[in-house]
Measured scan of single mutants.
Amino acid sequence: ATVHVKGVTYHFDNPEQAEKFAKRMAKELNGEVHVDGNTWHVD
Rank of each mutant, 00 (worst) to 15 (best):
E28I: 12
E28K: 12
K27T: 09
G37M: 04
E19D: 06
K23C: 12
V35I: 08
T39E: 13
F12R: 00
E28M: 12
L29W: 05
E32A: 12
T2A: 08
N38L: 10
V3W: 01
T39V: 15
A18Q: 00
E32V: 15
F12N: 00
N30E: 07
T9W: 12
E19F: 06
G31R: 05
A22E: 00
E16W: 11
K27M: 13
A26N: 02
A1P: 11
T2Y: 14
V8N: 08
T9K: 09
P15Y: 12
G7W: 05
R24C: 08
V33E: 03
Y10R: 03
E16Y: 10
T2N: 07
E28T: 07
V8W: 09
V3S: 01
F21S: 01
L29S: 05
P15S: 11
T9F: 09
H34W: 15
H41Y: 15
R24K: 13
Q17T: 11
G37P: 02
V42A: 02
H11R: 09
Y10W: 07
K20Q: 13
F12L: 02
G37A: 04
N30T: 05
K27P: 01
D36Y: 13
E19H: 05
P15T: 10
M25E: 03
F12S: 00
K27E: 12
K20A: 15
H11S: 07
F12G: 00
A22K: 01
W40G: 01
A18W: 01
V33S: 05
Y10T: 03
T9N: 06
N14I: 07
T2G: 03
E32R: 14
A18L: 01
A18H: 00
A22D: 00
D13C: 10
G7K: 04
E16S: 10
D13H: 08
E32I: 15
H34E: 05
V3T: 02
N30M: 08
H4V: 15
P15V: 12
V3I: 02
V33L: 12
D13P: 11
N14C: 08
F21R: 00
V5E: 01
E28C: 13
K27C: 09
P15G: 08
N30L: 06
L29K: 03
N38A: 06
E19L: 06
F21V: 03
H41D: 04
E16Q: 11
V5N: 02
N38R: 06
V33D: 02
E16C: 11
A1K: 04
K23R: 13
R24G: 06
V35D: 03
L29G: 04
V5A: 05
E28Q: 11
K20L: 13
F12C: 05
N38C: 07
T9I: 15
F21G: 00
W40I: 06
V8G: 05
Y10D: 00
E32N: 12
N14F: 09
V35L: 11
V5M: 06
H34A: 06
N38Q: 07
A1I: 13
D43P: 04
H34I: 09
H11E: 06
V42I: 09
N30Q: 09
D43R: 14
K6Q: 13
G31A: 14
H34C: 11
W40D: 01
N14K: 08
K20N: 11
T39H: 15
K27H: 11
M25T: 05
N38D: 07
Y10M: 03
E16H: 09
N30F: 07
A22Y: 01
A18Y: 01
A22T: 02
E28F: 09
N14A: 07
D13S: 12
K6P: 03
N38W: 09
V3G: 00
K23W: 13
Q17A: 14
T39W: 05
